Every structure is written in C-alpha cells, then in structure tokens.
Amino acid sequence: MRNVVILLFLSLIALTTSAGASEPDRFVCHSNGSSLQQLRIYEINRANQDAFHQRFQDHALRIMRRHGFSVIDMWESDTGEKLQFVYVLSWPDRATMDARWKAFLADKEWIEIKRRTAAASGELVREANGQPLVRVSYSPACKGRLSIRGARLAHSRALRADDYVADSTTTASPTETRPGATVDP
C-alpha cells in the first residue's frame, strides 16, 4: 500500500511539473510551418531615402538571399515626424536567425557596399531595430487555431477535436465554430 501511495505521489508531481513546463507555450501557434518571424524597423534619413531604397533593393536583398534570409513583406511608414522602412523576415528558429544575421553583417561585400554608400550619400539609416515575433494560437493566421477557451483547456487537460475553432481551410465562416468551441473577441 505504501508503494502505491508513493507511486501516486510521484506521478502527481510529474504531471504537475509537466503542466507547469508548458505554461509559457500555451498561447504559441505550433501548427503553421515557420515558428519565428522577425520585425525589422529602420528609421531612414529622409534626405537619403532614394539612396536607402536603392541600396536595399539592389544589394541588401541579394546578399540576404545568399545568406538564407526569407523576406515576407516590406513597407514604408511616413508619420511626418519619422520615415521608417519596415519588413518582416521568417526563420525556422532563433539559432538560425542569429547565425544568418551574424554571417550577413560579416559579409565582405555588404561591408564594402555600406562603406561606399555612406561615403557617397552620408548616413542612410538613423536607427535600426529588430525583434523576434512568435505567432499566438488565437491568431487568424494560425492553422487549427484555438480560442482563448481552448487555450485554457489545453492547460488543464488534453484537447478534443471539438475544442478547436474553425480555421481558414474549412467552409465555416469566420464566426462559426465547431461544436463545443467558442470564439472569444
């Protein structure tokens, strides 16, 4: 009897530990390919806008491709106060992102192009920022996404098929759900 109680106690500890370990990931979308995107925002020197775009289009993109970068989309944002170039990259994981950025920034051709364009046009970028993004499970872009209710259920028990919200590959409208599921605003 004592062995049974000890075994049950150890099982309970293991179950509690594994549930707690998954806590940070419970809202992460795991079902749609690339798990990591990176948002990049450059504040462009307005006087050098054309030179910046020419360098990015003609050189940066080509060298990024050579180093395995996957550019998802690019935008320009002009608030009147700031002129920004914004783009999103997709990565298989953080280690790959870090390694490829390190290789890109050390690329001799890129270093020389930056030196030449700075000598000809001056400062092109005032400030550059980047941050990794991980899609959340309730994002419309997450295939097989969960409602908030479903994410809460995932934390407390194994999910059944009817806990999922209809995804974009079904014929359900965006507000319809599978039986038993809810769509939280």
Rank of each mutant, 00 (worst) to 15 (best):
W75P: 01
R66A: 12
G20I: 05
V4H: 03
K114S: 09
E43P: 00
A118Q: 10
Q37S: 08
L146T: 00
S121M: 02
F69Q: 04
V5L: 11
T170Y: 08
V86K: 06
P92G: 07
G68A: 02
D167N: 08
I72Y: 10
S147Y: 02
L10V: 15
N45R: 04
E112T: 12
A21Q: 12
R116M: 07
R100Q: 12
R40S: 11
G130E: 11
D98N: 06
N45M: 09
A172S: 12
D93S: 08
N45C: 03
R145N: 04
L153M: 02
P179D: 11
D107T: 01
T175Y: 13
A172V: 02
S11E: 09
L7T: 08
S18I: 09
L153N: 01
R152Y: 08
E43G: 03
V4D: 06
Q54V: 14
I44L: 08
H59R: 08
L10W: 06
T117W: 00
S31N: 15
L10R: 03
D78N: 15
A21R: 15
S90H: 04
K108G: 12
R135A: 10
R157L: 04
S139Q: 04
A118E: 05
R115M: 02
M74L: 09
T170F: 09
E81H: 10
I111C: 01
L89M: 06
S18W: 05
V165C: 07
T171F: 12
G130Q: 11
G20F: 13
P179A: 12
A141I: 11
E112C: 01
F104P: 00
G33W: 09
S147H: 07
R2A: 12
V183A: 12
W110R: 01
R94W: 04
R65H: 15
V4Y: 06
F27Y: 15
R157A: 07
V88N: 05
F104W: 05
A95K: 04
R65T: 15
Q84V: 05
M1C: 06
H53C: 04
W110N: 01
S90C: 03
D50A: 10
T16Y: 10
Q131R: 14
S77T: 13
